[in-house]
């Protein structure tokens, strides 16, 4: 399955997800899910860093292949075409009408099975989280199932002679983690500056292979019982204008809100 090819990672897999844009106002359907009506869907912002990193690693190696993999609805072909337009070589969509509601464990199981079929890969890249369910779990879960190391929330990545050194942000500092290829990396903002697809890329993407495989998502262990809007905040008030309002503001914070 996953094995090391050589000194530079060349065969790279990048996992991506179609998600609601961060500007989305969330409306809830049936008390359990996002109402997709009127929602703009985009490539998960953190996945853009993963795609960019994959392309840069391939370019640096001067050879190799970048495969994009996604579990999504049929509509996710749009995001995969975008990844192909950025420069990926081929894409695979694991399609299911309910894919948007899959939990991390279910998603990881599907991705793992497909990676075992399509591998070996030297490097697996993920966004650090998808901005819908915010689970932060798919990358490390897939890596664990494959038995390869994983470094999460990476802001700085160095790969040389099969050795991986990555920096990740932790509370109050940065952590340096070492591992060897094959390895999974989940990407944090700051790792790189993702490119935009140009017209040539968009045209080329139309001819690149995009396989669609229907999958079965039954057997999820995480059940969503309910989705609700957060409790509305009690109405606030304007304390005053300018620096003159500061003493009254501090009085309220101390005596009324009791937070100072």
């Amino acid at each position: 399955m996953v094995r090391l090819f050589g000194p530079n990672p060349m065969n790279i897999l990048v996992c991506v997800k179609r998600v609601p844009a961060t500007t989305t106002r969330v409306a809830i359907l049936d008390g359990k899910r996002l109402n997709p009506e009127g929602v703009e869907f985009v490539l998960n912002p953190y996945d853009e860093y993963a795609v960019e990193e994959a392309l840069r690693r391939k370019e640096a190696a001067g050879t190799g292949k970048v495969t994009a993999l996604s579990l999504g609805t049929a509509d996710a072909q749009k995001e995969l075409r975008q990844v192909l337009a950025m420069g990926a070589d081929e894409a695979v969509l694991l399609a299911h009408a309910e894919a948007g509601f899959a939990d991390a464990a279910t998603t990881a199981r599907q991705l793992e099975a497909e990676i075992r079929k399509r591998g070996p890969f030297d490097l697996l890249l993920f966004g650090k989280q998808a901005v819908d369910r915010d689970q932060h779990g798919v990358g490390p879960m897939v890596a664990t199932k494959l038995g390869i190391p994983c470094i999460t929330e990476v802001v700085n990545l160095d790969i040389a002679d099969g050795k991986v050194t990555a920096e990740r942000e932790v509370e109050g500092g940065r952590e340096t983690v070492s591992a060897t290829l094959p390895c999974a990396i989940t990407c944090q903002k700051g790792l790189n500056e993702p490119r935009y697809a140009n017209l040539k890329g968009i045209m080329a993407a139309k001819k690149k292979p995009l396989d669609t495989v229907q999958v079965d998502l039954s057997g999820a262990v995480v059940e969503v019982l309910e989705m609700a809007a957060p409790a509305p905040r009690p109405p606030g008030r304007i304390v005053g204008e300018g620096a003159a309002a500061v003493p009254e503001l501090l009085r309220l914070l101390r005596e009324e809100a009791k937070v100072l």
Partner: peptide
């Protein structure tokens, strides 16, 4: 979920 725009019970 959605960075706090909604809460789910699981």
């Amino acid at each position: 979920v959605f960075a706090g725009k909604a809460l789910i019970k699981v």
